[in-house]
């Protein structure tokens, strides 16, 4: 191989850079594309926390004047809403935009015709969505502060917990979306039959223990429950055994890694036609 490239540095440099930075180039591309709908991103990033924190943290809270445990209802529900916002963004970005990249706006094939690999496409998508989730969570958190929902000084760490939650669910969804050849409403099914039940049964509005035991398993396997509990621990010092806190971190992390590796393999296989 070296003999072939002797005296021709440009392809070597291009290849070396693409091997090293390819994932970032994909992320850069996706972030530029997001500018096309930046206004929607900004409007939802600001509108969602205002609406949800008012409706649930202020409105619904009047029905729960004693709060939950040591926390007010606003403090109890705010970390759950933060994690849910992260999951919503992840679901938006890892469903139709991924399907589009293969089908209606097949940019992944274009990237792959350049020196970019399937693995780098998966990584780049993950990075760009991670950035969008992080921005959404920071804005959400600022509203939580403004509403007085974060008594703990280390509460800002809930931004990372929520980002991890969104990424974990999102990457698993991306792995699945990459297998979809024809759109037969699978994306709507993900939203209605996976994301919505997770939102409702992950201890979002009430402690998971309030549910009958035969429904509590939904929370145990839901990264949203783990992320929410972690958020509560960080924003108002919700107490739980340390081993459970470890699980709240390790489980979504493992799911994220699994989702990313699966997506890398599926994209690589799908591009090699």
């Amino acid at each position: 191989m070296s003999a072939v490239h002797e005296g021709r540095s440009t392809p070597d440099v291009a290849t070396a850079k693409a091997r090293r930075w390819g994932s970032w180039y994909v992320a850069e591309h996706r972030l530029r594309s997001m500018r096309a709908y930046a206004q929607t991103i900004l409007a939802t990033s600001i509108g969602n926390p205002v609406v949800y924190l008012f409706a649930l943290g202020v409105g619904l809270a009047t029905l729960v004047p004693t709060g939950v445990g040591d926390a007010t209802y606003l403090q109890f529900v705010a970390p759950a809403l933060l994690a849910t916002a992260a999951v919503t963004v992840a679901t938006e970005e890892f469903t139709y935009p991924v399907l589009m990249g293969f089908k209606w706006n097949p940019i992944f094939f274009g990237m792959n015709a350049a020196p970019i690999s399937g693995t780098q496409i998966a990584n780049g998508l993950a990075l760009s969505v991670l950035a969008r989730i992080l921005v959404t969570c920071v804005i959400y958190f600022l509203f939580m502060l403004a509403f007085g929902a974060v008594p703990s000084p280390i509460g800002w760490l809930a931004i990372l917990a929520a980002t991890l939650t969104g990424t974990a669910i999102g990457l698993a969804i991306m792995a699945y979306t990459c297998t979809v050849e024809e759109d037969k409403g699978q994306m709507a099914v993900i939203m209605r039959f996976i994301v919505t039940p997770l939102f409702l049964f992950s201890g979002t509005f009430f402690p998971l223990t309030q549910l009958p035991l035969y429904l509590q398993w939904i929370g145990w396997i839901s990264p949203l429950w783990h992320g929410t509990e972690l958020g509560r621990l960080l924003t108002y010092g919700y107490e739980e055994p340390i081993w459970l806190t470890v699980i709240h971190v390790v489980y979504p992390l493992a799911l994220a890694v699994f989702g990313l590796v699966a997506a890398q393999r599926i994209i690589t296989r799908r591009l090699d036609k």
Binding site: M1, H5, P11, T15, H29, F109, G110, A114, P115
Partner: peptide
Amino acid sequence: YGPEVRSQLGVVPQQDNLDVDL
């Protein structure tokens, strides 16, 4: 050597895959 080869090619596919968001 996929990336090494592709770094020296230009490809015009049968189906345009320009990014319509850009």
